[in-house]
Structure formats: structure tokens, C-alpha cells
Simulated scan of single mutants.
Amino acid sequence: MSVKPRKAIDQMPEYHPPLAGRTALRLDFNENTFAPSPKVLERVRSLTAESFTIYPEREPVERKLAAHLGLQPNQVLLTNAVDEAIHLVTFTFLNEGDEAVVAVPSFFMYDVNVLAMGAKLNRIQADETLAFPYERFLAAITEKTKLVILCSPNNPTGTTITREQIRTIANAAPQAAVLVDEAYFHFFGETILDELASLPNVIVARTFSKAYGLANLRIGALLASAEMITHLRKAASPYNVNGVALAALEASLEDDIYIEWYAEQIKHGMRKMAAGLDELGIPHYPSHANFILMRIGPRHKQLVADARAHGVLLRDRSSDPGLQGCVRITIGPNDHVERGLAALKLAIHAMNWTPEEAGLSKGTSGDEHEYE
């Protein structure tokens, strides 16, 4: 006999991020491709030997983040990145047999965590435009729905959900927790955070892996009403965020100028990359994040391999529902954008690729690309 896991764990899918050998330019995982604020490095270098022997205290940094966001301290829970944030939400609010609703394609860790709870996941497929399927999503909410997941801007498409749509969905499911994943907020600029008082079932997730450049330290946050955070805090380990990450976040919060600069770099890079893709005839979708999704067609794997040979990593998203033949490229500062475009040009020309291979016409998602 052998030890068996719970049925839900045995049957759930496993996430395998292709991280091995990432020594080229990292345009594959939507990270900050440059650096965190210089204040982060200063703070980390100032840590004493004794500080590594002490259990981390989350609450002082939660108070600072709350003040930074205009919230109360009891509305903030720091997490081990958004991965743990998603886990805490599903663990706290889903019972076996409950239902959750998510629009796809989206972040695969939603699937992993919902299914691990033994809950049913209703996936609402976007159409060929990849826009959020609002009407069908709203219609999928029933009295059995106990968790609604909204990702805006969405990964891996870059599409968004309007504040009005989020408000309507939250009000349509008062019995459900509504997780609004705003991981890419700093590149989009629109949030539902200021409406938490009137939307008591909404939980906002933020990460410090993207604009803040702290991906390696694994730190994120859940932001909600005091009542919702009380429930979530019970499910969280008291030492879930390490002390180095806490010190780095504290330093980052003292440098808004750097975050604003980096976000502007990305917005400029989005426009430049979009123009370059148009010049190459590569169909792509409007995005409000720090990446652009391209449709290459059957030779998507070859493009990724050839770009890697030219020193640039891309992410093949062809296995995602509705994204057959799609490849995603992360946007960094100007130099990284130029290197990414150069690698794309070399790969495309070496492949003798033509726009007809994508199965779509140039500018599939419209002639005007909103990279602002």
C-alpha cells in the first residue's frame, strides 16, 4: 500500500513554470527586467546579522502599506506573493462542492487553488477578441457561486475589466468572495480599491513582483474590508513573509518617484513594441499590462527557440485555452525593448515567416492599440 493524497489533490493539474536556464534577456515572465528602487538595495545592505535570527514582523509594514494606499491597517494582509494570496482566498472561502467562476484564458494558479479545495470551477471562455466575456460571465453566477475571480489587466492577454463591470458582478454575487487581481495595476492605473467600503465582498490582490521588481523576494498583499481580512488572517501563517522581503517593501514604499519612472518606461516601451510588431506584420492584442500577446501560428515553438538563440526569452502561451499559436513578450525599459525587437526581427526573417501563418490579418484586435 502507498499513501494517497486527497482526491482533489490527486486530480488537480500541476503548474510547471519553464524556469530552467533563464540566462538570456528575460522577456518571458512579466518581471521587472531592470531593477528595484535603489533604496531597496541600500536597505538590504544595511540589515544586521542579528536581523536574520529574528522572526519577521508583518504588521509594521502592513501599517505603512495601508497608509500608502489610503486604507486602515486592518484592511491589509501581506502575503508570500499573489500565489499565496490566491491560496488564502480559496482556502478561506471555498468548501468542497462550492462553485467558482473565472474567465479564461487567465492565470493558471486560479485553477490549481480552486480545484485543490474540491470546488467546481466554471471557466468562461473569451471569444477570438480575447475581451472579457462580461455578459456570459455575469450569467454564469448562481446562488452556488462562492468565489468570483477577476483579473484586470488579465494575464496572459492584457485585457481589462471596467469598474462598472466589477461593481455589477460583485453586487450580483453578495454570497461570494470576489477576488480582483490587480497585479499589473501600475501599468494600467485603474483600480477598484477606492470602492471597498461599498463592495464588502471584494478582495483586491496586489503584487510587488512586477513594477516594484521584488519577484525573487515573494511579497504581495490582500486588501479588503476589515471583516474579510480578519477571516483571511486566520488562514495565514504568522510568518508567511520573510524579513528581507518586508524590509525591501518598506524601502520601495518610500520611493514613489522610482515606481512612476519605471511605469512610464513600460508605457513608452509598449508603444514602441506595438509599432515594431506592426512593422513586422505580427498580429497582436491591445494590452494594459507590461507585456504584449502576439499570434504567430503553427510555428510558435520555433519562434521561441530562435529568439532564445538570439539572446531573448519569450513565453509560449499556445497551450492556454483560445491562444493556439500565441507567444507573449514582456516589455522592459527602452534598451530591452530594442533588444527584444531585434531578436524578433532576426527570428522572423530566418523563419521566412509571413503574417498569413497567424491565420489572422494584421491588427486583429483593431487598428488602434491602447498603450497609454
Rank of each mutant, 00 (worst) to 15 (best):
M1T: 11
K4T: 12
Q11G: 01
E14V: 10
P17H: 04
A20Y: 09
G21K: 07
G21S: 05
R22E: 10
A24E: 02
N30E: 11
T33D: 01
F34Y: 12
F34G: 03
P36Y: 08
E42F: 05
V44S: 06
R45H: 09
S51P: 08
S51T: 15
S51Y: 07
T53L: 06
T53W: 00
I54K: 15
I54Y: 04
Y55A: 13
L65I: 13
G70M: 01
V76C: 05
L78P: 00
N80S: 13
I86Y: 12
V89N: 14
E99F: 01
V102R: 07
A103Q: 10
F107D: 04
M109W: 11
D111F: 03
V112K: 14
V112S: 08
A116P: 01
G118P: 00
K120P: 00
K120Y: 02
Q125N: 09
E128I: 09
E128F: 06
A131T: 07
F132Y: 15
F132T: 12
K144W: 00
L147N: 03
V148R: 13
P153V: 14
N155I: 10
T162E: 02
R163H: 04
E164R: 11
Q165A: 14
T168K: 14
I169T: 06
Q175N: 09
A176R: 07
V178L: 01
D181W: 00
F185S: 06
H186R: 15
F188P: 02
E190P: 03
T191V: 03
D194W: 07
L196A: 12
N201H: 03
V202T: 11
F208P: 10
Y212R: 04
L214P: 11
N216G: 15
R218F: 03
I219F: 01
I219T: 06
A224P: 14
S225G: 12
S225D: 03
T230W: 01
H231W: 02
A236Y: 00
Y239T: 12
G243S: 09
G243W: 00
A245V: 11
L249Q: 04
S252E: 11
W261E: 13
A263Y: 04
R271N: 13
D278N: 15
E279D: 14
E279C: 06
L280K: 05
H284S: 14
Y285F: 15
H288Y: 07
A289M: 06
I292A: 06
I292Q: 01
L293N: 11
L303S: 08
V304K: 09
D306Q: 11
D306F: 04
V312Q: 06
L313P: 05
L314N: 12
L314R: 14
R317Q: 13
S319H: 08
S319D: 09
D320V: 04
G322V: 03
Q324R: 10
G332Q: 10
P333Y: 05
V337M: 06
R339V: 00
G340F: 00
A342S: 13
A343D: 01
K345V: 14
A350H: 07
N352Y: 03
P355K: 11
E356F: 03
A358R: 05
A358S: 15
L360E: 13
S361W: 01
D367A: 11
H369Y: 08
E370L: 15
Y371S: 09
